[in-house]
Amino acid sequence: MIELDGVCHDIGSTRILSDISAEIPRGHLTALIGPNGAGKSTLLRLIGRLESVQRGRIEIDGLDVAQTPSATLARRMAVLGQQTAISSRLRLSELVGFGRWPHHHGRPRDIDRAAVETALQVFGLSPLADRFLDEVSGGQAQRAYLAMTFAQDTDWLLLDEPLNNLDMSHARGLMARLSDLVRRAGKSVLVVVHEVNYAAAWADHIVAMKQGRIVAEGAPRDVLKDGTLSMLYDTPVAVTQHEGRPLVLHHY
């Protein structure tokens, strides 16, 4: 379980997060939704210790992220931020291989090589394994980063907008994979999602944020309602049902 207690965050004099207290359950696929600038990414980066906590307290499975050594946390949670253009010329297999680094610190064993192999396969990258990162498309690079995170094989996965650059089939494939990880392997996933229907179709738990605060949280059918979503995104939204899950209509 991730516990947030009174987390505040400022960048310069701008308040990004105000007094966030929440619990993100273990063994669930949790989606973090909300409009641009709501503070979703900042919150995810704070939990993933990519930013240091200014005020409040964040614990992941009882470990305080501000106190626990980073190398220990790297075996508990894998975090993928939004990728900026990187000039490094690594082969995709080498990049994914670095996902195992927290486990072997430079001396890969058979189990590490097997995990890399599996991750490449799962994300459809085996044929591209020997290509350099700057020789593949944006979506393929994004999948390589995801495969690296996946290869890290941690209890928790924190992903910041992993659907960026992915086409329909890979986006759906990723969500199905994450859902499968939760259900079969007992992992916990926290994912920032922009397109609310991916949350509606796959998430077990939803946290909705606006202007640095949590405005709603709970099961998809409780959070994804006409009124809540219209208020959240400041735009009229209708919610219907499709195969027993909410379907959000917002695009016409």
Binding site: S70, L73, V79, G81, E94, F98, W101, P102, T149, Q152
Partner: peptide, 18 residues
Amino acid sequence: DRFAILALGDGVATGLGL
């Protein structure tokens, strides 16, 4: 390896526990 990981960005390095 540490330098190769650092070249991928501070975020990736921190995520891998460096």
